[in-house]
Amino acid sequence: MKFKFLILFILLWQIGFSQEEEKQKKHYHDSKSFYSKFELSSPLRVNQYAGEINEYTGEEEPWFLLDGISLRACIGSHYDKWIGIGMNIGIDWKANRCLVVAPLFGSLRLSPRITEDIRITSEAGYGRALSISGDKLSGTFKKISLGIEDEENGFGIYIELCQYGFSKITPERIGSFSVGLNYIMF
């Protein structure tokens, strides 16, 4: 009788131990606090012939023209997908300035939920920008962006203002206004 009771006790203890171990694994998986993000955007510039009729096509000129492309990647840490900090690296091409820049910057991200699956995001970044187009230019990099993300699949759209802390020819600093898409993985 004592032997059967001992076997039953050990069996129940073993099941209880297994359940406790499973809870620890599940808790560890839910507390993942890192994210990675990829961005693709295009800077826009004002068309000086906006509103005029193009004599070759007969169409009205658009207000904005695409002016290059930007590709960036980020890895960071977040708290409950609401606030995060990250390290970013990328490559920006500004066509009208004949400039290729590699920004390396840190960012602070705020993304409160506005519906069950949609988050509004704002991000500010500060760091360094290095010209890799042979100009040997270097300076600060500042950016601010505002966007909307779908929490379920990670895709989003955003607008961004950025400024490089140097100038190529004229005394004003180079900057841009961009529209882009991003993909974030938590």
Rank of each mutant, 00 (worst) to 15 (best):
165 G>K: 07
146 L>C: 05
159 I>R: 00
88 N>E: 13
117 D>T: 12
111 S>C: 08
141 F>V: 04
130 L>G: 04
108 L>E: 02
97 R>G: 00
120 I>Y: 06
164 Y>K: 07
114 I>A: 06
119 R>C: 13
119 R>N: 15
166 F>V: 05
170 T>W: 09
97 R>Y: 12
137 L>W: 02
163 Q>E: 15
155 F>H: 11
104 L>N: 01
144 I>M: 11
98 C>A: 09
151 E>Q: 13
122 S>Q: 10
98 C>V: 00
165 G>Y: 09
91 I>W: 00
137 L>H: 03
149 E>C: 06
120 I>F: 14
170 T>Y: 13
88 N>L: 01
108 L>I: 14
148 I>A: 12
116 E>L: 06
93 W>N: 10
130 L>A: 09
147 G>W: 02
168 K>H: 03
168 K>A: 08
152 E>M: 04
93 W>S: 09
141 F>M: 07
157 I>R: 02
165 G>M: 10
157 I>A: 12
99 L>E: 05
118 I>P: 05
154 G>W: 07
164 Y>P: 06
104 L>T: 08
140 T>V: 07
156 G>I: 03
95 A>V: 08
94 K>Q: 10
127 G>S: 12
105 F>H: 14
93 W>P: 00
154 G>E: 08
171 P>E: 10
115 T>C: 06
136 K>W: 09
